[in-house]
Design a protein around this nucleic acid. Structure first.
Lengths: 271, 271
DNA sequence: CATTGCATATCCCTTTTGTGATAGGCGCAT
DNA sequence: ATGCGCCTATCACAAAAGGGATATGCAATG
């Protein structure tokens, strides 16, 4: 089947082990790259008409704007993939042109947005997730690459059950993780942790003013800049830093960062 | 590879979906039956010298006594599979006769116990589970069937990574159920995120060496200390830092930390 | 075979930090 | 009211980091 099946099995094994962890999508895509080559991949979650959520992508830095940011602004509403989700397409692998209106290349979506992407073809796995959400994993070829051959498409189709099962489990795991302790105000669990850590780091030893200074130091401001923000002399900021380091038993900015990260981790085990 | 790979993928998908549920082992074995035929299968968990635990088997009612009950009474202590577990065998697929003492068929174990099983061959996947437990998934051929051919053995071996990953996840899931959340592998979700971020931060723009330097900078080491760790001149570390800052469009350690924290937050929305 | 990117390295100069010592004003509690 | 903790501030010196210029060896890419 898929070229060297050793690689496929090893790659699937890695993806299985990564279920519920950040590198999951990366591993899944790596497995698919062993089946057929492609230039970019992206995984969007579509929930009704809402702005799609970027669950994963591997666009180079320069391309992300057109493929993700710009897309999410509005073009997605004309995307054949998005429209297919609204039509309740069966799970499976589809070519974008098979889902598109008859004259895709003459349509509004193609002319006003898709040309900018410079893609020669895009295919996508559709996966119905619980709660009416549809995940689409897109594999893309840039315009210097040929379209997916029938053979490649068949091979990728054969992988669909595994891709689907993995995506479903990942989704379950994410929800198990975030449903207990998160999502009231749209902020993710990690963001809340970071925010919390900024305001409580060193609470037992540092004074209020010192914690303010710590916050700005951690956010990358120089002593001079912090002085301006807090409207005190830069020298005073330096005194605060000195006292802070002494209290924390450290002697550099770097060590402060390090302690902050540790606090972030530790917090997870007790808060 | 494995005959019809459609079936293999579908079967693996079913097993993935069954992780953490009772029919899991059944699905896993079903997948393997699509690769090569066998008469019976059993999955034992060995923990030190303790009586092995029967995690799954598909023996017909009449055979279970000799294969499971009798085996657990004592014969297991002479079982080449059990003995291999004590010797810390690497994960993988093994034939019983390759693990057995030279003259297996003349040995005590064979004469006093194994003959009763009426098997022509037995092969087993060895999987090291956390906590020093070893799981062995045995596939058996009764004496009217031929031994596993080299080709069949190779095909089953190719499946090993998947079998192993599935078994590990199943074991983790069983344990998560009893030990509430976290720890299992000593890492909480946030810690995993941080660890992941350390290794992927700036992946699209920074080189490997640069990311190594970033990691140590974020962990609070000075250029001199990093130079010693990476065994390069301190001046070189400073060059790396300079290049890193240029690529990231920043100009201080603090800004680097700030970007790292932002990456951590962003990751939560897509990881 | 030339180019490009990466890792390595040194000089030199400026800016920022880390650390010492020292000290005035303010609020709060014994 | 006297002491104590906190915030403020200055001076001076040493250590580390930021930034420019320049160069060599190596591997991959064309």
């Amino acid at each position: 089947m898929v070229g060297s099946s050793d690689n496929w099995n090893s790659a699937v094994a890695e993806a299985i082990m990564a279920i519920g962890t950040p590198p999951f999508a990366e591993k899944l895509v790596a497995a698919l790259r062993g089946v057929a080559t492609f230039d970019y991949s992206v995984m969007f979650a579509y929930s009704g008409d809402a702005r799609p959520i970027d669950l994963h992508d591997d666009f180079p830095a320069g391309k992300r704007r057109v493929f993700v940011t710009a897309y999410q602004e509005g073009p997605y509403l004309l995307d054949p993939f998005f429209l297919a989700c609204s039509r309740d397409v069966d799970d499976g692998l589809y070519r974008i042109k098979d889902l598109a209106p008859d004259r895709f290349y003459q349509g509004e979506y193609f002319r006003s947005y898709y040309v900018q992407t410079g893609l020669s073809e895009e295919i996508g796995y559709f996966i119905q997730l619980p709660g009416g959400v549809v995940a689409v994993i897109s594999l893309m070829r840039a315009d210097h690459s040929p379209q997916f051959s029938a053979r490649e498409f068949r091979k990728l189709s054969a992988c669909e059950p595994v891709v689907r099962a993995l995506a479903l489990r990942q989704w379950q795991d994410l929800h198990r993780r975030y449903s207990d302790d998160a999502v009231e105000d749209g902020q993710s669990s990690i963001q809340r942790h970071i925010e919390y850590a900024f305001h409580t780091f060193g609470k037992s030893v540092l004074t209020i003013r010192e914690r303010e200074v710590v916050e700005f130091v951690l956010k990358g401001y120089s002593s001079d800049a912090i002085g301006k923000i807090l409207e005190i002399a830069p020298g005073t900021v330096r005194i605060h830093r000195k006292n802070i380091y002494a209290k924390l038993g450290i002697n550099s900015q770097g060590a402060l960062f390090s302690q902050f990260i540790e606090a972030l981790s530790a917090e997870a085990n007790s808060g």
